[in-house]
Simulated scan of single mutants.
Amino acid sequence: MTETPTPIVVGTTAEPRTFGPLTPAMFVRYSGASGDLNPMHYDDTLARAAGNPSVFSQGMHQSALLATFATDWLGAHNIRRFGVRFREQVWPNDVLTCTGKVTAVEPAQEGHQLVTVDLMCTRQTGGIAISGTAEFRIEPGL
Rank of each mutant, 00 (worst) to 15 (best):
Q58V: 12
F56K: 03
P21N: 12
F27K: 01
V28E: 11
H41N: 12
F69K: 05
M40Y: 08
A33K: 06
R29D: 14
D44Y: 10
H41I: 10
P24F: 10
T12D: 04
N78E: 15
Y42M: 13
T13R: 04
R48G: 08
S54R: 13
A64R: 06
S54N: 15
M60N: 12
A76F: 13
T68Q: 13
F19T: 04
T12K: 08
M60H: 14
E15M: 05
I8V: 13
S31P: 02
A49K: 15
N52D: 03
A70R: 00
P39R: 02
W73Q: 05
Q58Y: 14
L22I: 13
D36F: 09
G35T: 09
V10I: 14
Q62C: 07
T18A: 14
G35K: 02
P24L: 10
L22C: 07
S63T: 14
G11L: 10
S57E: 00
F27C: 01
L66Q: 02
L65C: 04
R48C: 07
L46G: 04
S31H: 07
A70V: 04
P21S: 10
F69S: 00
A49W: 11
Y42C: 08
G32P: 06
Q58D: 14
D44C: 09
V55R: 00
D36H: 07
P39F: 05
G20R: 02
T71Y: 11
A67Q: 10
D43N: 15
T18V: 09
L22N: 11
D36E: 08
D43S: 13
G35S: 07
V10P: 09
P53F: 14
T68V: 07
P24H: 09
D36K: 06
V9Y: 03
D72M: 07
T18H: 08
L65Y: 00
F69C: 01
G11Y: 13
T45K: 01
R48W: 06
T23P: 00
G59T: 08
V55G: 02
R17H: 11
G20F: 01
